[in-house]
Design a protein around this nucleic acid. Structure first.
Lengths: 246, 246
DNA sequence: CGGGCGGTTGACAAGAATCAATGTGAGTGG
DNA sequence: CCACTCACATTGATTCTTGTCAACCGCCCG
């Protein structure tokens, strides 16, 4: 990949940046200047972080990052070792957009190897542009996902929680161009899933098997296939986040 | 209350607005123009809403409101009737600041009689002022509270959840000038508390009694007294949100 | 080959839900 | 003033979902 090619926004953009552009454009129409601002991220050499690293300790702020590949999470650990994964950070997501006001009890940890670039160029002084609106909509999606997580943990059974989370993964990865037709790679151990869903590993394992036995999902290696999306949605009372068409 | 007096921001401000000013000022220093902008809210005649009303149906947007008195909540109801209260809205909070992008599965409902004014004057075109920073910090607090809720529901026992929520109430009401010394009014039925904590009413009742029996809290009428704040904090792994001093 | 991690399984315990009944207190109408 | 009602709180008995403990398997990798 030569630098010369990447000077031109539309052609020869790395797929991750192109997917981000698509996604932002669907949230709020971007103008040319906005597109250029996003495309400029492609000029950065991606940085890498190994798996199981703490990206942000509790209450530490840093520059926002655009996650190009790999999965991360916000996690909180109780004094006796219980762990709760609060939210997942997937490729195409922006990490640490909103700096923790002062002390934030959650830390951010990588679950796999990550590739990321500095996202702060997106946030420089665009009071009312399409980009600002799109980034704001992105933040609202994050909050909506948090609310879904609350409902899952508060009032749903184990199999409903799992179905709901898998549907969320499929939708989010689909928006980033990493899932289609109900299939996606999920590089998580069952322990991580359990910590996200508020279940024990053992029970999560049995719940996974239940969904498989019922033909609702399939699981080969780390690839998930949602076999009956409609049934899963009914179980989880989940619906995809609305988007502008095309 | 004559209108003439309320023209002057600093003196004769209704206590609710004064408390909001205090709270915002602690989040980010306000300048005179900011103070005036907030104080202008006092010129509105408060509107009222009865208890158990739906303020915002799912996915409907409206003007942001400043809640002067009364309690409300964001709630999601599953098809089979299970209900989860996602977050509480307390006096001094701003409701519906971030309009739901399109469809929002949560609706907002009043739990008591409410008094509120239109808060949209706060959001007019202040790109980089102290008020904008303070309002942003307020939004971050909301998200932090959502994360706490996730941890409660995902990884804490019933008595830990309850302790955590009561501590949050005390802190938030304290910031609004409605709690001091661990005492505050909590106009909620046990059913509402149960729906917030992901518990059954029966179990919540027993959990309340457990905390009372252990001398950690007291409950007379609808007034809660936190008798051993330190112990409660240890149980709930809860700590107050950091603020600028004074 | 050994070791460890992740996944799977069974037996059992425990937290929490459900069902059902009773208590209590504030209104309300006769 | 007193039954009556209604909403809310409380209690006991029982069921069920989920957690815990422990063992075992399969597999990758040094």
């Amino acid at each position: 990949m030569s630098d010369a090619l990447q000077e031109l926004p539309p052609p020869a953009l790395p797929p991750e940046i192109a997917a981000l552009l698509q996604r932002l454009h669907r949230l709020a129409p971007l103008e040319e200047a906005d597109v250029a601002q996003v495309a400029a991220l492609a000029r950065q050499a991606p940085r890498e972080t190994g798996p199981r690293q703490e990206l942000r300790a509790e209450g530490i702020r840093g520059a926002p990052l655009l996650l190009l590949s790999g999965w991360a999470c916000r996690i909180r650990i109780l004094p006796d070792g219980r762990r709760q994964i609060v939210s997942f950070l997937l490729p195409g997501d922006i990490i640490g957009r909103q700096q923790p006001s002062l002390a934030e009890l959650c830390s951010i940890a990588s679950l796999t190897r990550l590739r990321h670039v500095d996202a702060s160029p997106l946030f420089v002084a665009t009071p009312e542009g399409g980009l600002a609106r799109a980034l704001h909509a992105l933040a609202l999606q994050d909050v909506a996902q948090l609310r879904d997580q609350v409902v899952r943990l508060g009032r749903q059974m184990a199999h409903e929680r799992l179905a709901s989370l898998l549907l969320e993964f499929e939708a989010r990865l689909g928006a980033a161009g990493l899932a289609g037709d109900g299939r996606f790679a999920m590089p998580l151990t069952q322990e991580v899933l359990a910590d996200a869903l508020g279940l024990s590993v053992v029970h999560l394992n049995r719940t996974l098997q239940q969904l498989r036995r019922e033909g609702l999902i399939a699981l080969k290696g780390r690839v998930v296939t949602l076999r009956q999306t409609a049934a899963l949605r009914a179980i989880a009372d989940w619906q995809p986040p609305p988007q502008l068409p095309d």
